[in-house]
Design a protein around this nucleic acid. Structure first.
Lengths: 230, 230
DNA sequence: GCGACACTTCGGCGCGGCCCGAACCGTCGC
DNA sequence: GCGACGGTTCGGGCCGCGCCGAAGTGTCGC
């Protein structure tokens, strides 16, 4: 019976619309302040404080106090994956009605971050391109080939060593296909942002591929025809 | 915001200890009657009825009425996987204290069903043995090799054709390793039960490997030293 | 120091969920 | 038919949770 209690306690963390909104916002992998989350979810300060306490106690979030700010972020990739899984299995709601919602959805489908790596059509396209030479599908994830290691080192300036798993697969919420996560995915995403091949749109998870980025993706990976959101 | 609502609504289904207990019980892949579930979870009839209605409406369970009985089972492998994921990520409770709980846990760790296929040390051992010849680790699951297809046909008397995915990987809750799910895993489990290589222990998910089973596993797959629960 | 600000604690309100007992409805066995 | 039985519906009690406004604490900028 205690097993069921534990499962229920974990599920309860995500079973409130406000806490779920926090989680989805934090899926961009960044640390948000309590106030930002409160405004994002449309609740008052005290309400956000209570939720954050509960989520930190449950180990779903970690906090980092700095001056008068309280930053929180997802506790790790396992949590991000759990959120993504729940998100993918959630009953499909009615399609978006307002223009604002439609364009936001389209932007997310085109390109976004999934915790700390690339997702959406962009993420899947990049992963597919890498799979031809640098990645091997493997038990429960990807393995980076020696050629892939060299590619990351030369083209991305990232040496993939040490901590495991270096590559993890993540099922995409909109595409329903796997894309690259893990340390390699995070490094890729960080490099793309650093070189301004992609830029964040607004405050959410959506990304926009820059002109430089389109050129680079075509030359480096042969990825074509990435359309932005309408 | 509607995204968060959907995620929360799905999580809420699992956020009650009684419903969670139902889900864990149903993880044996069989159909249970409302009364069985009520007794198992220690609640009264009306309470179980209410929960089952809610879970069926949410699409987590499917029901099948037969005479004065109402049978329910998990709606599909996706739901089973979601439950298994939540179960794996749940905060580790205090270790079992009573002798009864310890032996029950040990039995589950040794061998059990995971929805409709084999799990625990038995499931992992069988999967490992098959991986040497009959299975290939692959993107998001396993692929059955031609040799594997022949093996299933000749040794198990099962022709794996048609519906996909024929093989799926499932992360084990106790072993933290992948094991064989999908149609192939289900066929394997069904054959093992049919030939009485394994038998169900009590009413739960636990399995016991029979003497016949030990012999067969050693001869067929070279799997040794499967110990039963204490 | 002294406001402005981010966050927290406290108290209280109201909704919704979980649970049960009692009564009701269909099915099964005789 | 007529009990026994599985399941359901109804009604009501209860507790927990989510929410906020007001007041308090610590930090930053001047």
């Amino acid at each position: 019976m205690t097993d069921a209690d534990g499962l229920a306690a974990l599920a309860a963390i995500f079973a409130d619309p406000t806490r779920a909104a926090f989680c989805l916002a934090l899926m961009d992998g960044r640390a948000w302040t309590a106030g930002e989350l409160a405004r994002h979810a449309g609740v008052a300060g005290p309400t956000a404080t209570g939720h954050l306490h509960r989520m930190v106690d449950a180990g779903v979030l970690v906090e980092h106090r700095q001056g008068r700010h309280r930053y929180v972020r997802l506790a790790g990739p396992q949590v991000a994956q759990l959120v993504e899984t729940l998100h993918a299995h959630r009953p499909a709601g009615p399609p978006a009605r307002t223009l604002r919602a439609v364009t936001a959805r389209a932007a997310l489908e085109a390109a976004r971050t999934c915790y700390d790596h690339l997702a959406g059509r962009l993420g899947v396209a990049v992963t597919d391109a890498l799979t031809t030479t640098g990645l091997l599908d493997q038990d429960n994830g990807f393995a980076v080939t020696p050629a892939g290691l060299r590619w990351f080192d030369r083209e991305m300036g990232v040496e993939l060593v040490g901590r495991r798993p270096v590559a993890r697969s993540c099922i995409d919420w909109t595409e329903r296909r796997v894309h690259l996560g893990g340390a390699a995915g995070a490094a890729l995403c960080a490099t793309f942002l650093e070189r301004r091949w992609v830029t964040r749109v607004g405050t959410g998870r959506a990304l926009r591929v820059t002109d430089d980025g389109k050129t680079a993706l075509r030359n480096l990976l042969g990825v074509e025809g990435l359309t932005n959101a309408a």
